[in-house]
Every structure is written in structure tokens, then in C-alpha cells.
């Protein structure tokens, strides 16, 4: 049982939780993730990237968006409640070493997992620039933490409600031209990562992406997370989640992410209404 020590709502649908998990906190490295399940027979298994960890206190920080039934249920847990099942750390850690200049791009909820990577990249002596983007101001998270890594963090929103109006690829392209990074790490929605990779490819900049695919066990057993990288089938859970963004078959990945879309949309709609009823909003 993993007790929730701290919970904060970061935006309408985004939550931060600090959870007791001493073994995971001790072992985890930047780029790794956990799979959680809220007990009993019927709850789903949810993969979430570890956004932060404190080995001394034995805690990890999770950031999630309430998009499906499972994440809605998770969002309804409070400080003092327990997450029945928490497995990790999973996946291979990010390849952190001294590249020289590194740009970290985080999009939406993907800003959270990009933070520990930015931290680790800086800690081993890289110069780090951060670009973070979201649909609007409300969905921007981790701004302070990112600013602690790059005081000139570049903020982009689709609607211009914060920072520059536009997409993360704009500032990324500019940095590629003027700052000439040796490595780019991009984490966010698949379509964002695809276009980041297309952008950096023009400049020949090595680009790491962290893939968020359908997954059940997270240990290599189901193969639901398989992606095509450089023409080869790879399992995101054991061989990833990070791959060379220039080699990923993005179109297949995005199609596969839609496998259960209809089911998820129906459930999301239902959960949303349930949540509003509970909160007296509907």
C-alpha cells in the first residue's frame, strides 16, 4: 500500500500527488515510469511517468491528467488514502551524459516527465534550455521548477494566454538555428513529438522522445506497447520508453493509440459527469 502524502490540483484536469514508495524512490532514474492499479478486480493498470522523487523521504511524485475512468478515480483519492498497487521503476532510464547543449521540450502533461530529465541533464554538466507548451495558461504546469533549471524558459501556448502564441516547434527551430544544441529531448503528445523530431532532423540534432503507448503489465508480457523503430518492432515498456525520435514510425504509433478510442471517450464522458455530480456542479 502506498500512502498519498500530498495532493494538489494543478489545473482543471491535472493533479500532482506525492506518494510513499521507498523502493521506487531509491531505484528510479530520470525517464522511468510506474504502473499503478487501485485495487480490486476491475480497476485498470495505469502507466505514469515519475515526475520527481525523494530518496531520503522515500516518496515519488506523479502528475496525471484525469482523462479516463482510472485517472478520474485516482483524482478522487485524497491525502491519507492509499494507492493499492504501485509497480516500478519501469523502463530504461534516459541516456543522460554530457552532450554539451541540450534543449528539453515538454508539451502539456508531458512537461512533468521532462522535468527530471532536464534536472539530470543539467546535473551532469550540460547547458540546458527549456521549451514548454500547452493549449492555454491553465494547462501549464511546473513553470517554477522548470525556471529553476533554465531561468529563460520559453513558454508557448496555442491561444497565446501565456508566453508566445504558437507551437513548441517554433522556438525549437530557432534554438536549433541559433543555439545549435547537441541533443533535444521532447516529451508530450505524439503529434508534438513527431513534429519536434521532424524539426530537429533538418538540423541533424540527436533527438530523444519518450513514448506513451497502450500498455497493460509494463513488464514485457503483453506487447500492446509495441512500436516500430527503424523498421524493427520494439516494446516501449522494456526497451523504451525513450527512443531516437528520428527513427520512430509516428503514424503507426498514433493509429495504435486510437485502438480503444471509442471505449475511452464513452467512459471519459461518463466519469466527467459523475465527477461533476459529486462536486455539485451538475
Amino acid at each position: 500500500m502506498n500512502k498519498i502524502l500530498y495532493k494538489r490540483q494543478l489545473s482543471a484536469e491535472v493533479f500532482e500527488m506525492t506518494v510513499e514508495a521507498p523502493l521506487i524512490a531509491h531505484e528510479r532514474k530520470a525517464g522511468q515510469f510506474v504502473v499503478l492499479q487501485l485495487g480490486d478486480d476491475f480497476n485498470e493498470r495505469i502507466p505514469l511517468t515519475i515526475a520527481d522523487a525523494d530518496d531520503e523521504k522515500g516518496t515519488i511524485t506523479l502528475i496525471f491528467q484525469a482523462v479516463g475512468e482510472g485517472t478520474h478515480r485516482l483524482a478522487r483519492l485524497n491525502e491519507g488514502d492509499c494507492i493499492a498497487n504501485l509497480l516500478g521503476p519501469l523502463g530504461r532510464p534516459t541516456d543522460v551524459h554530457k552532450y554539451g547543449r541540450v534543449v528539453v521540450v515538454g508539451g502539456g502533461i508531458g512537461i512533468a516527465p521532462s522535468y527530471p530529465i532536464a534536472q539530470a541533464m543539467k546535473a551532469c554538466g550540460n547547458e540546458v534550455r527549456v521549451v514548454m507548451g500547452a493549449r492555454n495558461r491553465d494547462l501549464l504546469i511546473f513553470e517554477d521548477r522548470m525556471r529553476s533549471i533554465d531561468e529563460n524558459v520559453i513558454i508557448v501556448t496555442d491561444d497565446g494566454s501565456a508566453g508566445i502564441k504558437g507551437l513548441v516547434t517554433g522556438p525549437l527551430e530557432e534554438l536549433c538555428q541559433t543555439w545549435k544544441p547537441n541533443c533535444v529531448v521532447a516529451i508530450g503528445p505524439a503529434v508534438m513529438m513527431k513534429f519536434c523530431a521532424l524539426t530537429t532532423k533538418k538540423y541533424g540534432v540527436h533527438t530523444l522522445v519518450s513514448l506513451n503507448t497502450i500498455m497493460i503489465d509494463g513488464t514485457g508480457m503483453c506487447g500492446g506497447c509495441r512500436v516500430v523503430v527503424d523498421g524493427q518492432m520494439k516494446f516501449v515498456c522494456v526497451e523504451g520508453p525513450e527512443f531516437d525520435g528520428h527513427l520512430v514510425d509516428w503514424d503507426n504509433l498514433m493509429q495504435r493509440q486510437q485502438t480503444f478510442r471509442e471505449f475511452e471517450q464513452n467512459r471519459h464522458h461518463k466519469c466527467h459527469i459523475d465527477m461533476q455530480i459529486e462536486e455539485g456542479r451538475a
Binding site: I216, D217, M221, C222, G223, G224, R226, V227, V228, M233, D249, N252, Q255, R256, Q258, T259
Partner: peptide, 15 residues
Amino acid sequence: ENYVGVFSANEYLTR
């Protein structure tokens, strides 16, 4: 083999 709707038996049965 990576089209939507292709599953390993492991995945299908685990679900």
C-alpha cells in the same frame, strides 16, 4: 502486424 486490431494472445488473454 502492427495494424490496430492485431494483438498478442498474451495481451488479449490478459485483458
